[in-house]
């Protein structure tokens, strides 16, 4: 082990970037495990949606779908996206909690790399998304959904859920740093979630909905997350909001959806990184 002695006579092993990431990753994992209520409730809402929607709307919705697709299969990718939305929205809440309790400041006076601090926290949230999406996919299959592209497709849906979560994760942290208030952060995240889900392609084909919703859905990021996951799930070009034909098959959905998500992730991610840098820098604001 690398031990360095500073001029001040302090002995410390050199903190590696990855070591700092791991420290924070594990800290937030413990946090999640110790708050089982939060973890479970973030699973319960999507599960209720999955069960209720398929039971209540299953027969009616079936008519709006293309032939030979069950509503279970149609809805499941949307629920996976919903899960990543719910978990991502808790990210800012954790940050505000840290700021309010002083643990954030405590972290800033340690020699840990600051980027590593946030990376570790984010990775812990992504792991939660992976685990919860796996659970919901398994449950969906039990209820009769079918992943047309098989195990590889299931892995792709998990990857899409993560790609989708990043912009909302960044958004949640940005709101947290602007409001610095737990309730505002929770309200901002929850207020957006449900309406955004409903005015997207999540629950029904956009073409079955009123014109204004069709217009909103084009500008709603959830549409692109859901469409990408659904294309993989059904092995079909499911995108209605944009008419892309250049790539063939499901790629006509995947390429534009993923492009939109990546652009969103980069823009909102940059804003969040800027806010985080500002919050942790020593210069007076």
């Amino acid at each position: 082990m690398n031990t360095e002695t500073t001029a001040a006579g302090v002995e410390r092993t050199s903190n590696s970037f990855l070591g700092d990431v791991w420290t924070n990753f594990m800290r937030w994992n413990i946090n999640a495990i110790r708050n089982p209520f939060v973890v479970i409730s973030s699973l319960v809402q999507p599960i209720i949606f999955l069960v209720l929607f398929t039971q209540v709307f299953g027969n009616v919705a079936g008519g709006a779908l293309q032939t030979n697709v069950s509503y279970e299969s149609y809805l499941l990718p949307a629920i996976a996206v919903q899960i990543s939305l719910v978990v991502a929205s808790s990210s800012g809440i954790g940050l505000v909690d840290d700021i309010e309790s002083g643990v954030f400041q405590k972290t800033l006076v340690t020699p840990m790399n600051r980027a590593a601090v946030f990376l570790g926290k984010t990775l812990s949230e992504l792991i939660r998304i992976v685990i919860q999406v796996v659970i919901i996919l398994a449950l969906g299959v039990v209820l009769g959904a079918n992943v047309a592209t098989g195990v590889l497709g299931a892995l792709a849906i998990i990857a899409i859920a993560i790609l989708f979560s990043l912009w909302f994760l960044a958004f949640s942290n940005t709101v947290a740093l602007i409001t610095r208030d737990q309730e505002s952060t929770i309200i901002a995240a929850n207020m957006l979630q449900l309406p955004l889900l409903f005015v997207s392609s999540a629950f029904l084909p956009v073409s079955a909905m009123p014109n204004w919703i069709q217009t909103v859905a084009i500008y709603n990021p959830i549409t692109y997350g859901v469409d990408a996951a659904r294309a993989v799930m059904l092995d079909a070009d499911v995108m209605e909001v944009l008419d892309v034909t250049a790539f063939g098959g499901i790629w006509n959905t995947l390429v534009p959806s993923l492009a939109v998500l990546i652009v969103l992730d980069v823009i909102l991610g940059a804003i969040a990184v800027y806010m985080i840098n500002r919050a942790s820098s020593a210069s007076v604001q």
Binding site: M1, T3, R12, T13, T23, R34, N35
Partner: peptide, 21 residues
Amino acid sequence: ITEMTARENLRFACDAYGVPR
């Protein structure tokens, strides 16, 4: 960190400050 035990808090601080393992 209230979710952690006293020992875990100290372990976290050891990690953060790079105390030799």
